[in-house]
Design a protein around this nucleic acid. Sequence first.
DNA 1: GATGAATGAGAATTCATTCAT
DNA 2: TATGAATGAATTCTCATTCAT
Lengths: 208, 208, 208, 208
Amino acid sequence: MPMGLEERRRRRIARRQSEILAAAARVFAEKSYAHATTRDIAAEADVAEGTLYNYFGSKREILLAIASEAQAPMESAVDRAMGMETREAMVYMFEAALDLSAARLDFARTLVGEAWLDDHILQQFLMARLQAIHGRLTEFIRARIAAGAFRPIKPELGARVAMSIFAGLMLPVLRGVAPIPPPDERRALAEGIVDVLLDGVRARPSGA
Amino acid sequence: MPMGLEERRRRRIARRQSEILAAAARVFAEKSYAHATTRDIAAEADVAEGTLYNYFGSKREILLAIASEAQAPMESAVDRAMGMETREAMVYMFEAALDLSAARLDFARTLVGEAWLDDHILQQFLMARLQAIHGRLTEFIRARIAAGAFRPIKPELGARVAMSIFAGLMLPVLRGVAPIPPPDERRALAEGIVDVLLDGVRARPSGA
Amino acid sequence: MPMGLEERRRRRIARRQSEILAAAARVFAEKSYAHATTRDIAAEADVAEGTLYNYFGSKREILLAIASEAQAPMESAVDRAMGMETREAMVYMFEAALDLSAARLDFARTLVGEAWLDDHILQQFLMARLQAIHGRLTEFIRARIAAGAFRPIKPELGARVAMSIFAGLMLPVLRGVAPIPPPDERRALAEGIVDVLLDGVRARPSGA
Amino acid sequence: MPMGLEERRRRRIARRQSEILAAAARVFAEKSYAHATTRDIAAEADVAEGTLYNYFGSKREILLAIASEAQAPMESAVDRAMGMETREAMVYMFEAALDLSAARLDFARTLVGEAWLDDHILQQFLMARLQAIHGRLTEFIRARIAAGAFRPIKPELGARVAMSIFAGLMLPVLRGVAPIPPPDERRALAEGIVDVLLDGVRARPSGA
DNA sequence: GATGAATGAGAATTCATTCAT
DNA sequence: TATGAATGAATTCTCATTCAT
């Protein structure tokens, strides 16, 4: 399978772009987009400032590319969970939410942080995904109710509660307030949450 | 009740400071601290740029004052709920979380947004409050378990789940993605959530 | 001797002006005119900033008034020395150059420092005096030569050397590098200098 | 002798820095550091304001670089004089003090002027040199006394008198009150001063 | 393609002066 | 007269982007 010069060039460009994105994500994750300078990014990527502009049209374009990459992995966990049995699915989803590599964390932190500041990023890259996930979860719940596995709660509300809990787990990690929990803790946390979600906090009238 | 000149002066200053803070909060809420210029703030407050510096030492000091004011009302709802009966308390807390005036919203949005970017604000003004609230909720749950009203779940986990749901409700409002819900919706939402939290989503083995 | 209201008012104004000048001189002496703010001056004078403008038209006018006062005492020592016997006169002049009260020092430091920066002050307040003194000294030397007391050196050169030595004594004190020497040191220093000036540093052919 | 790119780059940078320093020195010499704006400096150096900051970290750093360059030539004259015969040495030193190119004058004027205002510059760049020179002169005089060429005056006093006369010659030139004297005048002035310093002003009892 | 110096618009902050009270 | 808050021009410094090499 001979590779044309053209092909080789395209790959080289793609590789370089990725390197720059990863470097930029590290910088943005540390200082935020606004406080990061193109000089910082170039230094982290170990290229000259001018070189950045051979691969991206502007600082903002780098941000958009990061935001774009950041949204890719978001739904996969939900997708995969769709095929599982109820409890297993729920535990898997919560567990997966916290399964972040440091690299992904930089991208995700950048996306979430800038979505707070930038309407375009918010809508295009974050809300779009979140709404898709919300739709999936709503369907999941609706199906469980239909199957008699869940009480007849409002599915949208359930989805929203679930997503809030996801968010509540992830935001402190993204913000760097909480560490990425190691696998066993992740599982224990997920199981605990799922337990509460499934059966609630209220004590059951025992005997009855 | 005669008012000394000194007193009158102090009040005038306090009033002006509040006006500037409110104006700044509006600007920060719209464009974020970093993108807001002192020129913007001055224009919104309808004073000259230099005047800002008669009331605050720096742009950052304005931000800190806003952050400081923003944290004031955070615990009050939790405090008040402490004295209520379980279900009522829970509904009240969730409902109160969404009871934001537009003015408070500017302050809160500024606090939360900058806490994402600024470690000092995060720790000093946001985490301090959130941890206090977390402590209160943990106690609340522990007491309910002791009283036999709640199942023996881990209180910290319960508190965390509850706070995540608060956050999941508030963040979209603060970010301007969701509108401030009108009172009746607020209540319905709160009741729905409390219902799920109390009894879980799982269907009960009916007859038994 | 009845004093009219008018008179009393004039005095009150004059007193206040002096207080402000003294305060300003202290501030200028410490931070220089350029770095001193009207706020500093007002604080040191214990009046409001606006009050300064009731007594002086501008910050610069305060400086000019200080420069004006600073030049007053400059020639007096030379004048007084004119009537003395040669050696006594010379010692007296050098000694007097160093006899500065702290208050006079503030004025003199301000004058000299600003004369470096400001042509008007240089010419009007400093050079005018220095040239007058130079003239007096030239005359003094010329007379001594005529009387056979001095060798036939060039009187202008002698005056310039003498003034240079004055300057070399005073500048470090004005700048705050050297302390104001106490009276006995002053005299010893003056006598040493006069000794060198009168007889030179060269050893005499002893025998002759 | 091939010159690497790196080398060429270093030179270009050094050249540019020198140009900026020279331009800044001209501006500072004319309006003083405090009154000179970065805009003035950039205009004089014929670069954009931002460019200044590619070569110096701050306006103050430019000043410090000038002060640093200004001190370089100060001791050289004294050093060279050390090897000469007494009278020749003295004449040479006074003459050299006035041998200033216009460029050096800008640097020297800046150093002296700012030393009046700025303690760090005073100590680090001016006093350090002056004290070194004072030490050298003191040794010079002490050696002459030991050799029987000078009377047993106090060497420190003699050094101080000499330095005062240097200062008295230079300050008016630095301040722009006196012109840089042409070579022949310089020599005549130096000889006249040395004559007075060596033999004093007093007439000798002729016959005796 | 890669470089990095040059650019200049834009930002926060200071401060002499004014003026309503 | 005394006050001190308001003003806004002026200042230093930053940084995304361009472009000659």
